[in-house]
Design a binder for these strands. Sequence first.
DNA 1: TATCATGTAACTTCTATTATTACATAATAC
DNA 2: GTATTATGTAATAATAGAAGTTACATGATA
Lengths: 153, 153
Amino acid sequence: MIRNSKLSGVLHVLLHMAELDGPATSEMLAKAMCTNPVVVRRTLGGLRDAGYVRSEKGHGGGWCIARPLTEITLLDIYRALGAPPLFAMGNRTESPGCAVEQAVNAALDESFREAEALLLTRLGEVTLAALSEDFHARVAGRHQTWDLEKAHG
Amino acid sequence: MIRNSKLSGVLHVLLHMAELDGPATSEMLAKAMCTNPVVVRRTLGGLRDAGYVRSEKGHGGGWCIARPLTEITLLDIYRALGAPPLFAMGNRTESPGCAVEQAVNAALDESFREAEALLLTRLGEVTLAALSEDFHARVAGRHQTWDLEKAHG
DNA sequence: TATCATGTAACTTCTATTATTACATAATAC
DNA sequence: GTATTATGTAATAATAGAAGTTACATGATA
């Protein structure tokens, strides 16, 4: 049961991109995400298709936020990443013939469905602008770094 | 991101055990869970330690429910399985030095925390007795099988 | 035209879970 | 007592999915 950290990582680089004047190359972003440039391009590709970021080729190219931070929620990003499974647990069999298993699945599904609905609602209530505000408050209050290069080596 | 189905599988065999007169061997239960007897013994070991099932060695041995179904909730079973991670997503870095990442983590943690609380509450509200009742209703209403051997053979 | 950056397919590596093997331990049947 | 049956558990192998890497095409700018 590996814990996917794409959402976390993507939000991270999006906020960094928002702080930069020019575009950020996938190589720069890869350092901030501690991963490979190709992985970054693959991952951000979904966001580009959804219109949240823009990418430019060639000299001076790279990645930019394409819309105001106030108009992008965490839910938007989650969906642009392909809405990967939220839960680490699933049913053993999705369409069981066994009545016992049907009862088990029905009970689990109901609980998980409710939790998922709440989670998605909450993610939909948080904008990148709110995250950015929180970030600026942290920097101001605690004298912490925000420079992309310095913060991630 | 593999989806763990232990909880689903364990609930399944617990309800079957509840239907049987005598003890169920791990070999029988393995068939119902489509897995290996050793896996069953390992998995049910946690439930035994928590007092929800009993195991006996030798002739006529096997596994039995140790407490009334009314006194066991899905949350109890989840915990007896070691409370495995509920969510398939996690933070990229748990204690980041980068203020951007701190802001991201804080926002995600809050949403996931709320969803987790709701989910655990719901699991705590469902007893094995309720599942058993649902199962019997399904068998009565739809003329479905409940025999351990027949349903999974 | 050289350089830089993305786009993407193909392939390799990594890692965590699950399955399997092997054997010790304990209880019952004979 | 001995054979049989079942659990308990360590060690190892197989599997699957994600992530990383390589390679090269495409397109933009200096």
